[in-house]
Design a protein around this nucleic acid. Sequence first.
DNA 1: AAATGATATTCGCATAACCTAATATCAAAG
DNA 2: CTTTGATATTAGGTTATGCGAATATCATTT
Lengths: 113, 113
Amino acid sequence: MSAVIENYWVTILKALGHPTRLQIVMELLKGTKCVTDIHDLLPASQANISQHLTVLRNARIVDFAQDGSQRCYYVCRPELVEGVLSLLRNEQPESRGTKVQCCLRKPDSEENH
Amino acid sequence: MSAVIENYWVTILKALGHPTRLQIVMELLKGTKCVTDIHDLLPASQANISQHLTVLRNARIVDFAQDGSQRCYYVCRPELVEGVLSLLRNEQPESRGTKVQCCLRKPDSEENH
DNA sequence: AAATGATATTCGCATAACCTAATATCAAAG
DNA sequence: CTTTGATATTAGGTTATGCGAATATCATTT
């Protein structure tokens, strides 16, 4: 897997890995909104929301359409974002997940470091 | 959506949003590995890999089974991680994503801030 | 051409994340 | 019970991130 592509994945994951940005994206999935709309919905300053939108834009998660003086933001990779969210919805923090038997380390892995 | 759960999602996304940790997880998906195995595969120090494994463990993405003096790490939420990776594989960084028409902001949204 | 509304940018600071070097644990083998 | 191999932890320094305050842009209205 090329490092360029992997870096892009990391950029996406990092962009989604912030409470405010995740909320923005979840709101945008419900429908296109301008910055003021988002500002009305979330407990953050206008400047801060604008900053987070820039991060999301750089990760190519959102894009906007200009409409006079306002910018209508939307999720431009809805399958990706909805997919990730629906996977997350299946996970409970308390659950321990799958238990797995131990690996048997092969004694021939002797590359030195 | 409860803030507790959302914080957990953010923890997961943040944990995956680092190049070394993403690589660790991708290696572990191929099979359970102990720390030395991972160290042999990735260009990072033993201490650093151990630190990243702690982050992944706190996010409940990986767990380990003790086997004598070594710890066999594995992905304990394989459906989640594989799901996310397969969604990411569908995305190219160059693609512009879906274009969307502008929102029409309703003039009645007048809650003050 | 002001004034206004919507949004972006810049600066400065506080905090968090990351990494290396050094050290500590701890189980298995001598 | 000392040594060794495997792993974890701590400390300290560096860089990155997040955020508020102030300011800048830019389109629209007056």
